[in-house]
């Protein structure tokens, strides 16, 4: 697959098979196209004028997501995303988590309650927050906010969860909590995570893809990549020769 922003090619010759119900990490130096690749998967790049896939296909659940009969809202409902900077709405905690269900037409209070509780439990927030679901989400700490965003993303029960450097703005303790969370999430979701931090990739991911200048240099089980890289470039990157 090729991907262009206007005339400049951001991704080239990408071919990647993301394994089901595993954590896949995308690593690489800044500007290598990790985030662009991630954003291709739920078509968040559609909004950027001139951005388009120029060659090849992105297939999720076997379906080319650029087909005319793909409904963008359905796609995004099933491919959730968590951003680098936590971005809860200025609403209550409950409303934040329920937002995704509500926009997809769910009005039944009982269903919503249940989904909110499940999502919060999954993101390990339930015990901390169950007594103050009505409080403003903006009053939470940074780590809690990010986990709330994860809860919001998984409340609609997506199949795939995209995470764009979810820990880069957090302190080490919060980061630890979210990393723990990720391995649990992999039991139910296919998780793709972009990260800057190689240790994090080692800790949380089952598979790792190394990107450089818009190309996939190497892809394989995390252990193999880190202990026994096949490519010289990967080795250099891992050894910190460039970043």
């Amino acid at each position: 697959m090729d991907f262009c922003y206007g005339a400049s090619r951001a991704l080239e010759d990408i071919s990647l098979d993301v394994p089901y119900h595993r954590v896949t990490a995308l690593i690489g130096p800044s500007g290598c196209g990790k985030s662009t690749l991630l954003r291709c998967i739920n078509r968040m790049n559609d909004r950027v004028p001139g951005a388009r896939v120029t060659r090849g296909q992105v297939r999720v659940k076997g379906k080319n997501i650029h087909d005319a009969d793909v409904d963008l809202t359905q796609l995004r409902k099933q491919v959730g995303m968590v951003f680098q900077k936590s971005n809860p709405f200025a609403k209550s905690i409950y409303d934040n988590v329920a937002y995704g269900l509500r926009i997809h037409g769910e009005k039944n209070k009982a269903v919503l309650d249940e989904a909110v509780e499940r999502a919060l439990r999954h993101s390990a927030l339930w015990d901390e927050l169950k007594d103050r679901l009505g409080a403003s989400a903006l009053a939470l700490s940074g780590g809690q906010q990010q986990r709330l965003c994860i809860a919001r993303a998984i409340a609609t029960l997506p199949d795939v969860l995209l995470m764009d450097e979810p820990c880069s703005a957090l302190d080490p303790i919060s980061t630890l909590k979210i990393e723990e969370l990720m391995s649990q999430l992999a039991r139910e979701f296919t998780v793709i995570i972009v990260t800057h931090n190689m240790q994090q990739a080692v800790r949380v991911s089952d598979f790792t893809a190394f990107l450089h200048l818009g190309k996939i240099i190497e892809f394989g089980p995390t252990e193999d990549i880190f202990t026994n890289p096949r490519e010289k470039l990967t080795e250099d990157y891992l050894r910190g020769i460039f970043s």
């Binding site: 968040m44 951003f83 971005n87 809860p88």
Partner: peptide, 12 residues
């Protein structure tokens, strides 16, 4: 970020 989050959840 609000707009990103809402879009990513599949809101129209």
């Amino acid at each position: 970020g609000y707009i990103d989050a809402s879009d990513a959840l599949g809101a129209t």
